[in-house]
Amino acid sequence: MAELLSYGFMQNALIAAVLVSLAAGVIGTLVVLKRMVFISGGVAHTAYGGVGLAFYLGVNPVLGAVTFSLLASFLMGYIQRQTRQRQDTLIGVMWAIGMAIGIIFADMTPGYKADLMSYLFGSILAVTKTDLWLMLGVDILVIALVAVFYKELQATAFDETFARVRNLPVDLLYLILIALIGLAVVMLMRVVGLIMIIALLTVPAAIGTLFLKNMRHIMWLATGLSLVFTIGGLVISYFFNLTSGATIILFSGVVYLIALVVHRFCQRCPK
């Protein structure tokens, strides 16, 4: 274990786990409570189009991912707000088209493309110093905005109509939230890959909602759980020589199932 910690990439991975868990816990709670899981999945997959395009143009893939992710966030948010019907169809179509764009650009890019896979399945061990600084920046933005607008975000998540009648800036808050989801998605992509982002965004918060009655507490618990899942999954994957992203997700999935069973038979838990 001590030997494990002596590697630079392992230290980076652990710092990344902490940084990613903060965003996953805070944003994930809002995603779960606002029922935006499907949109988040759509944003994650559309972002792959940006990764492919960035590879093709020879620029930093994170830049492409952020651009596509934010564009997808706003577009999907707009669809969600404006269109009365078939929102899930439109989001599902964008989801697939984003992936397709990424793959086509990857095809058109000559040379070695193994790194593209790391965006699909994640590679927390390949996180660089630059990545860490970016993650820290996203964390600060996420925590600052959620702290400032906590009451209002809670009110809109619980009952948007009432919030609107109180003249809260419901649409602006939604825009802020969906942009934060877009940024969190790019961050999580480095760790678990875009295919499995939904799990890390939702499982910790979903466990929290099973047992706690306060959104702030759920955010803290989700952050803690997310940290346990990423570091636990990382350690397991190291000793059994498995893919880290998938191990993290499978670990969290198992804990979620256990939590569901415990909640089912727990007398004092809120039902």
Binding site: A155, A163, R166, N167
Partner: peptide, 9 residues
């Protein structure tokens, strides 16, 4: 939530 308002953000 009843105490929230757009003017007291």
């Amino acid at each position: 939530m009843g105490r929230l308002s757009g003017k007291r953000l």
